[in-house]
Amino acid sequence: MPGEPTGAAPARAGSTARDRATEALRDVAREPGAAKPDPILVADGVVRRFGGLTAVNVNHVEIQRGAITALIGPNGAGKTTFFNLLTGFDRPDEGQWKFNGDAVQGVPPHKVARRGMVRTFQLTKALSRLSVIDNMRLGAVGQKGETFWRALIPSLWRKQEAEITERADALLERFKLDKKREDFAGSLSGGQRKLLEMARALMVEPHMVMLDEPMAGVNPALTQSLLGHVKNLREDGMTVLFVEHDMDMVRDISDWVIVMAQGQVIAEGTPDSVMADPRVIDAYLGAHHDGAPDPSAPIDNEPAAGPKATDGPAERE
C-alpha cells in the first residue's frame, strides 16, 4: 500500500492524480463543511424528513474535484438518502446544491446523469435478462437509435452503434468482463455485477461517479481489482464520491473522508485525521455518556472495528 500522505512525500505537483488531490486538500481545514480549493459539488442546507424523522440535515458540504471522497457513517446516518437526493432519485424538503456550477436540485435523475453525475446502487442493478454487452451499450448517452422513429431506420444509427460497441468492448476488457460479453448479466456473480455496473456507469462518460457501497458483497479476490478500478477513475480525471463501511478500503483509496451521523456531517478530514477524531468514534460506538466526549476511552478500541461490525446488507433510511 502506498504510504499515507502525512506530508512526508513532497508531492511533485502534476505527477499523479492522487498526488494532486493530496496537495490540493493539504491546507483544507479538518472540520465539517470545510471549503475546498476546487469543488465540483457544493451543497447547502439539504434537509430530508420522513415524517417526524430528519434523515438528512446537511448544512454545507463541498466535494473536491478530481479526488476520491469517502462518505462514511454508522447505519441510519443518512448516507444513502443523501446520495439519492444529490442524484435526483429523491426530493429534498429544503436545500440547494450545485454541480459544476449549475443548480441541480429538482432536476430529474436522468438529467442529473446526463450532466455527468452518475451513480451506482448499493443493491447492484444489473439488467439481468440483457446481455453484458447490451448492458454496456445502454450506458452511452446521445444515441440516435434511442428515438422511436429513428430506431425504425437502422442506417441512421448503425455507425454510432458500432462506435459505442467498440468503446464498450474496450471497457469490458479493462474490467476483465470480455469473456462474459454475450452472457446474460443475471448469470454473473455478485462481484462481477459490481464491476459491470461500474463499467456501465463509465459508458455515460461522467465527470463524477457516485458509488454506493462498491465493496458490499464482493468476494475478497475481486476486492483488490475493484479498488484498482476506483483509483483509476481518479487518474482518468473523474471525481469519485463513495459510501463504504469497510474502513481498510476507505483508508486505502480515499483522499478525503466525510463522516455523517444522524443525518448531519459531523467530521471531515483525511482518513487518518478522521479516524482519530473522538466525535467519529463516538458516532460509531454510540457514546451516550454525559458531557464532552472522552477521547481516551474509545481510542483503546480499534476504531475500524465499530464500522465493520455495523456493516449491514440492506441499509434503508
Partner: peptide
C-alpha cells in the same frame, strides 16, 4: 432495460 430495472435506466440518463 426498463423491464429489468427502471432506476438503473434512470441512472444512465
Amino acid at each position: 432495460a426498463i423491464r429489468e430495472d427502471e432506476d438503473a435506466v434512470r441512472s444512465l440518463g
